[in-house]
Design a protein around this nucleic acid. Structure first.
Lengths: 200, 200
DNA sequence: ACTCCTTGGATAGTATGAGTCTCCAATACT
DNA sequence: AGTATTGGAGACTCATACTATCCAAGGAGT
């Protein structure tokens, strides 16, 4: 298909498609002449992926760039792949003091540490922010959060397709990014529901 | 304290404090003369709240404006208060078709519907996004997500302080906004951990 | 009283992110 | 032949969240 058809098919303004091409979020089409190129279903899929990630997923273009980078050069080991995909979708955070976090993880029996400890910094930063805001988590809350997230993650890890690397990355990225708002909305709705029962 | 002391105490640039005053995120100080005003601990608390919400909480100033609005005119019924606080912290979304969502909620025994259905629109939009991206939730995933979020919410609703309206709003807003990134990070770390066990 | 600092208020400027618009000469369809 | 479309480049726009500059009035230290 031609660029204008691609744009129409994905319901994205032509100027934006050109912009994504310039930014390398979309690979260039297959040139048929000096002023013409042809695009395929793969381009359409990619374009839809970009829109899903920037729109509902709320990712910045920088994060999307990392994600498509991960898709285009998948590491050979499936486990690393998941890590890369998940890291790509996360905004990087400044290094923090994560001694406390290490102790916590150990008490949970979590042994993985990505060598740069990015997720530890993340967690430490977030706990610090709660503290700075003068918000104390209720007793056992963190433990309970961990337990629930672990169960959710278990379900999700089991459903990752193991046949093709591309499919696995796609699944992991979308599952990570698009399910997040869903979880948060369910939590907020549950707050509504339970507070109605409790206080009315 | 004077404005410069306020700024220093909260570790916020003076120019930014002035900006927040202009924007109404910080109430004006108590005037002592034509060119002087005095600020109190309440101002410092507010300033720290704003920074916690915009920084780690990741809220836009528009959302912060809604939140402080909710804090300044608290509805008299505690339940409504929670709803307002939680709605204030959410970016509004365009109305969507939520017939399917209604059916879903009914099957969960969730009966609350805020009259404008904002959270239903939210949920419907997110499910739609998943669908548009060609991502099918594994069987029973949604149900499982709901169950876990309900349990988390139950814990949280029980820990809301019921003594003062201001304390309740503060708790709800911070708990909603600052715990969100925490939950997501735990989920991602759990993915790492479980995928390591599963695929290595 | 004199000097220098700080304040509130207003206006203007900056940085970043994410597009959007305009032109162009070179094709491509009809 | 004539109109429409293309790729490419550059400039422009819009929003958000600050920063910076300027000012005249008012306080503080000597």
């Amino acid at each position: 298909m031609r660029i204008s058809e691609l744009a129409r098919a994905a319901d994205v303004p032509l100027a934006t498609v050109k912009f994504y091409l310039r930014e390398g979020l979309l690979p260039p089409g297959e040139r048929t002449s000096a002023t013409q190129a042809r695009y395929h279903d793969a381009h359409l899929d990619r374009l839809r992926l970009v829109r899903a990630l920037t729109g509902p997923g709320g990712l910045s273009l920088a994060a999307v760039r990392r994600v498509v980078g991960a898709i285009e050069s998948p590491p050979e080991h499936l486990h690393d792949l998941l890590g890369v995909a998940s890291a790509a979708a996360t905004e990087p955070v400044a290094p923090a003091d994560h001694a406390g976090v290490h102790a916590l993880l150990e008490s949970w029996g979590w042994e993985v540490q990505d060598e740069d400890c990015a997720s530890h910094d993340q967690l430490a930063t977030e706990l610090q922010a709660l503290d700075d805001a003068g918000f104390a988590l209720p007793d056992g809350a963190l433990e309970s959060y961990r337990r629930h997230m672990e169960e959710i993650a278990a379900l999700e890890v089991d459903s990752v397709p193991t046949d093709s690397a591309a499919a696995a990355v796609r699944h992991v990225v979308l599952g990570t990014v698009l399910v997040e708002p869903l979880l948060l909305t369910l939590r907020r709705m549950a707050h509504q529901e339970l507070s109605a029962r409790r206080f009315r």
